[in-house]
């Protein structure tokens, strides 16, 4: 029984290490802040959780404490990544869009009126030009 638990812990440890590595690589390779957040937070969340849980399995006396850490990571990481994404958009960093500007639907929240006035002014300018 103990051997099976040990082997399970080792596999979990190895998987966690690989995901932590992938988190770092993803943060390095992705083209803009939002995609970096996606790759970084997801991979490191699972990686950190499984490394910490594997320590709890390999050393059964520490299990409750490691469980506290796992719950903390699962609660804290999405909140901080959400706060960073929100702050980054408020700051004015537009996301990298492959498919064109209509893929950013969040922009409508900030500039609904600006768009209309822009259209009006351009129409007025056109009228003046034609006149």
């Amino acid at each position: 029984m103990n051997d099976i638990l040990d082997i399970f812990g080792m596999i979990l440890l190895l998987i966690g290490g690989i995901f932590l590595f992938l988190g770092g690589l993803g943060i390095f390779r992705m083209p803009d802040t939002y995609n970096r957040l996606q790759a970084g937070t997801k991979a490191t969340t699972l990686g950190g959780m499984s490394v910490i849980l594997s320590v709890g399995i390999l050393e059964p006396g520490w299990f409750i404490k490691t469980l506290v850490l796992v719950i903390f990571i699962a609660l804290a990481n999405p909140i901080s990544s959400h706060a960073l994404a929100h702050a980054n958009y408020k700051r004015g960093n537009k996301p990298y869009l492959k498919g064109g500007p209509e893929y950013d639907q969040y922009r409508k929240v900030f500039e609904p009126e600006v768009k209309e006035t822009k259209d009006n002014t351009t129409e007025k300018v056109k009228e003046e030009e034609t006149a």
Binding site: F19, L22, L25, G26, R29, M30, P31, D32, Y34, N35, Q38, A39, K42, A43, L46, P95, Y96, L97, K98, G99, Y103, D104, Q105, Y106, R107
Partner: peptide, 21 residues
């Protein structure tokens, strides 16, 4: 989610099409 992210990070062409919905 993590397997999905791992696939995207590892593959050399970065198969992403990001946007905000």
């Amino acid at each position: 989610a993590n397997l999905d992210v791992a696939r995207r990070v590892i593959s050399p062409k970065l198969p992403i099409n990001p946007g905000i919905v």
